[in-house]
Write a protein that binds this DNA or RNA. Structure first.
Lengths: 208, 208
DNA sequence: CTCCTTCCCTAACAAGTGTTAGGTAGGTTA
DNA sequence: TAACCTACCTAACACTTGTTAGGGAAGGAG
């Protein structure tokens, strides 16, 4: 498990069955993603999971710690994937392709978490508990911006585009896919990545 | 608070002064955009506006009606702009360019409203009061999808891309710009639109 | 002067919020 | 058998939420 610098809050007594934990976290993530974190009541989560509100506190310290666990688990896995991509030491264009593909795979696996991250990370990052969100964002920017800049320097990418704007466009378009992507739908994540890369690399206009 | 030469209205209207109304709506939109609608308390809005919570109810029926007014005002102006673009009767590529440019102009003018729309529209559209959000979304899809399909049929756009996927990418990337765009920043909306169009039409890869 | 409108405040309400202390059925272990 | 642990429920707590009724200061109109 990759570490993002945060201590996992593992309180209570002897830990409850991790299987049930993951189950509850999955439904919580689903509700958080659908309704928003603040709009979601802990009673609603319990209702969806088939138990009563108070019973959730046998498994978790608080509503916030559920959110925390959902987001950090996602980020840990995301960065594990990214680090593997970087370790391959490919050129800028291939790295970008691999990063995009990896991102869509993560959306496929952590769709609710990505949706929550997308909606809430900005104002969560202000809280000390979620400081790792801000740190992750910085690493994220460094990674993608660096890849784009290497590509421009190496002649792979156009030099007449504002790299920072391009970075934002690329980043956002990848992640907002979580808002409409449905696992098991018509498109596999790799196919979505392929189409997206084709569009962003070569454009949608017919070449004359 | 960027606009309007403020008029010290002494108009004897039965309803409260519309100038004050707009002022309060502007700060409400700002807070909604920053914290999310549900996470925003009516006391926080009042605090930001320099009055007490109860006093807001002299101007508005409810917290929800503030949100309603913010969103519908934005959508009215947005569609006025889009209709003007369509009335020009241009070809697919020029229409797409005009639509994108117009969208970034709307982000410039209604940034908080766009950010709120982006975050909340999905689960708001279920409520009957906000049914117009769903309707607007349908019109939106018809408009953009139609433009893309005409472009493919006319040979302006590539035929080997999934039109529906392309539509989603284009749509999302335009609107999420509201999350990082700051009016008065380095980039004018027209410049952002130009860069974005260049990227999406011709791609970021160097042509070989 | 008095009347009236505009705009805000005071002070509370009822409903809903996250959370907790203590209890309990059922299975596992000794 | 008894002791123990897991996973849940019951029933409430303290607090925050959106909202409202009534009052009052300021200022123009008669």
């Amino acid at each position: 498990m990759a570490d993002n610098g945060r201590v996992p809050t593992n309180s209570k007594t002897a830990t409850p069955a991790p299987a049930r934990r993951r189950e509850l976290l999955a439904t919580a993530a689903e509700v958080f993603a659908a309704q928003g974190y603040n709009a979601t009541t802990v009673r609603r989560i319990a209702d969806e999971a088939g138990l009563l509100a108070g019973s959730l506190y046998y498994h978790f310290d608080s509503k916030e710690s559920m959110l925390d666990e959902i987001l950090s688990a996602f980020l840990d896995e995301l960065w594990a994937g990214y680090d593997a991509v970087l370790a391959a030491g490919r050129g800028p264009r291939e790295t970008l392709e691999a990063l995009v593909t990896e991102s869509f795979r993560e959306i496929d696996r952590h769709r609710p978490a990505v949706a929550i991250y997308q909606k809430e990370s900005r104002h969560l990052a202000a809280q000390p508990r979620f400081a790792y969100l801000a740190e992750s964002q910085r690493k994220f920017e460094k990674l993608w911006l660096g890849t784009l800049e290497r590509g421009v320097a190496g002649g792979d990418f156009r030099a007449d585009l504002d790299v920072r704007l391009t970075y934002r466009f690329v980043r956002d378009t990848v992640w907002v896919a979580a808002s409409w992507y449905r696992p098991g739908g018509r498109h596999r994540p790799e196919e979505i990545a392929r189409q997206y890369l084709s569009m962003v690399l070569d454009g949608i206009a017919v070449r004359t």
